[in-house]
Every structure is written in structure tokens, then in C-alpha cells.
Design a protein around this nucleic acid. Sequence first.
DNA 1: TTTCTTTTTTAGGTTAATCTAAAAATTTAT
DNA 2: ATAAATTTTTAGATTAACCTAAAAAAGAAA
Lengths: 217, 217
Amino acid sequence: MITQTEENYLKAIYKIAEKEKKSVGTNAISAQMKTTAASVTDMIKRLSEKGLVNYQKYKGVNLTPVGNKHATNLIRKHRLWEVFLVDKLNFRWEQVHEIAEQMEHIDSDNLITRLDAFLGHPRFDPHGDPIPNAEGKFTLRVQNLLSDISPNRKVNVLGVKEHDSPFLEYLNSLKIALGTTLEILEIVPFDKSMKIRINDSQETIISNKVAQTLLVR
Amino acid sequence: MITQTEENYLKAIYKIAEKEKKSVGTNAISAQMKTTAASVTDMIKRLSEKGLVNYQKYKGVNLTPVGNKHATNLIRKHRLWEVFLVDKLNFRWEQVHEIAEQMEHIDSDNLITRLDAFLGHPRFDPHGDPIPNAEGKFTLRVQNLLSDISPNRKVNVLGVKEHDSPFLEYLNSLKIALGTTLEILEIVPFDKSMKIRINDSQETIISNKVAQTLLVR
DNA sequence: TTTCTTTTTTAGGTTAATCTAAAAATTTAT
DNA sequence: ATAAATTTTTAGATTAACCTAAAAAAGAAA
Ligand SMILES: [Mn+2]
Ligand SMILES: [Mn+2]
Ligand SMILES: [Mn+2]
Ligand SMILES: [Mn+2]
């Protein structure tokens, strides 16, 4: 039996390990989970007892194969529920993350198998994130950060790296969504801000920080 | 903030109060919740602190209006999710209760409003139980126990009073579902068992205990 | 290679939710 | 009305998940 709290820790560890390939430190986890380092040490011991992480004092943790499987399954459930909320219940992309945070803990393999079929086996969620299959394998895709694209090129928005509601609402206000076409008109050398044309109509300037959160091709 | 455990207690108290109109005793709750009487006393104090139940030592509890609203809302969520599982994900009626026990705790009014619309504002769940509206009002309906119907009458199955999976599977094996027509052919005086014809075809004998769990009109 | 800084762990404590065993109150039976 | 049976509460523990403050280890800088 894995508790909801333990599941949240596993997901946090997975997400940190995703970017920093080395072993995951106590402080990084406490930041992600918004708890104290002391609480993390407690929990790490419990996860280690249960065989979900490998742990050596002062050396940080790594997910075991079992822990990794569990973490990817949580991500699978989270993203499938997000698709459900957007495709079937007409939520907008900035509204679904919080609800999916709760739904991902529902425990029923049968439910997820059926949900996946009901949704037509989606491969990406409403933020463009890949949905791992039942074995935990992710679909790979050619994608770049908008910030790495050179001027005078036209690209399509595939995803966003930030699920934060205010950020997504800002994109809404710019009429940027998944599938939107962006043409890079100009890059200001000083701060790397970009002048872009959105869907062949309005022109705007976006900061480099924003360009770094947009995945395109 | 109401915890999942507190929610489960509220629902238990509601269900007990539904049949026995007087105040709900500690033992009745401990039986329903499968805990000890001592644990119930602890929890009752907490619920009372939070204004969800009225409590006097040794006198049992009653839901306050706030507690009652919360309980009916849980039942609303539980039953709506059951409809979703059966109508949209093609689960059978004996498979959904356990999953709905988990889903009923998802906290989002917006979600439930949209789910209700997505399902076409259903008024009854897959077991024939009424779904309270957002204000907690139940649809009333003319219905009787099959055990109270006299011979030579034809009735329709409206609901079942037992959600237990083995019992529902037994009904499946008899080809009895919601909407099924039953004709009472004969009642054995000794044990009140009934000879019935199901959907104008097979004849069977069912015990009085079974006849007492079937709601018909 | 000391010394300073940061990270991590330990020590000790809290709250929610549970338990068993024993005491107290209430209800039922004689 | 007293005794017996039942119900309910209290007392005292346990476990998960958290916290603060202090100690210890590891890493970086002087
Ligand atoms: Mn999300
Ligand atoms: Mn997402
Ligand atoms: Mn149910
Ligand atoms: Mn039901």
C-alpha cells in the first residue's frame, strides 16, 4: 500500500531526476513538495523501506525500477485525466492541473484502461506533454524551445513547459494555444526578446523567458 | 477543511439516520465504518468541533444542516461518478461502487457541474438510487419492494437496495437489471419465496430476502 | 588544510486517526 | 429497585506526516 503522500513524493523525485540526471537531494525534494528537509528525510526512509527508492545517507535518492514504474503511472493517470477534463468536460487548459492532481491518485487499473480507450488513446495532454503508455514508455517527438529558433522561421506550438494558471492565461490573451503558428520576425540582441506574428495575424513581443517555455517545431 | 475520513463518517451517519430516524449511536457508526467505538467517539468530537454534527455525551449524534449538505453532496458525487463509469466507460453495475468510493472525494464544484451536464443531468444512478441535485434535494418516485407485491401482477425493476458485488452478479445471472419486467406467478406461504417470470421468458424462484432488495413499480 | 557555508540528519514534539483495555453511564431484565 | 447487560466514554498507546532547533557531515573557499 502506497499512500497519497508517498505518491506525491515519488512524482516529485521523478520530476527532479528528469532534468538533473544525478541523484536527487533532500533540499530539492523539500522545495518541490513545499515541506522541510527534515520531513523529507523521514519520508525518504519510509520510501526506502518500501523499496521505492535507493538511499544512502547524505547521498540523495534514486527511484528503484518499482518506484519509477509507479511514478510514470501517476504521470500517465494525471495526463489522461487532464485530457478527459479538456476534451470531454470542456475545461480550459489552465483549469485542469489542480483537479488532475487529485484524480491521479484514484486507484484502479481497469478504470485507466477504459479511460484511455474512451479518450481514443491520446499521446499528448492538453499542455503538449507526452502520456506514457501502460508500460511507462513515452512518445518521443522532435521539438525545440522557441527561444532556440532563428528569425524568419515559422513554427507550430507543440507544448508548454509551465503549467501555471497565470502563465497559461497570459498565453490565452495572446491567442497562443497548442497548434498555433508562430513566425519569428525579429530577435532583440540585448535581451533576446522576440517579435513574433501569431497565426498569421497579430504581432507581439514576448520575453526570452516566455520563449523558453514554448515547445515548437 | 474536511478530511476524507471525516467525509466518510458524515456519509455513514447520513446513511444510518436515513433508516433509523432517531439520533445515531456510536456503535452503529463503528459497525458501518468498520472501526471501534472508541475511534468513533474521538471522531464525533472532532466533527462536533467543526459544527458538522450535534453531539451530547451518551446521546448519539445528528447531522447539522451544514453536515447534512456535505453528506448529500458526497452522495451526489458518488452517484454521478457511478453513472459516468457505467454510461461512458462501459463498466457493469457491480464494478462501480468501489471506484466511486474514491472519486466522491474529488473536490471541485466546477467539475461536478460539468460532469452532471456531460451525463445529461441523470436523476438515478446505475443501481436505481436517486441523485440529489446541487441543493441536496432527491427526486421522489412511486416504488415498492417486490416482496410487497401480490401475485399475478407485472412490475418493472426500478432499483436494488444492496450494492454488493456478489448480489448484483447473482441478479446478472438471473438476467435481472434495471427496467426488467417481472411477473409474480406464485408466493410460497411457508417462506414467502416467489416464483417469477423474468422479461416474459424464464421462470425462477427467488427468496423473500432477494424480493426485499428489489424496488419495483 | 583549515575555516566557512551549505546540506542533511537527528532529536524532540504535534496532530489526525487508529487501537485495546478499563471505567462509567445507560438501558433492560428480574 | 436492584442487578445484569449493553453502550459509550476515557485512558493510554501507536503510526504517518508534519514541524523547529540543533548537531553533524560534506563541499567550497581562503
Ligand atoms: Mn498537470
Ligand atoms: Mn499537463
Ligand atoms: Mn455505490
Ligand atoms: Mn449506486
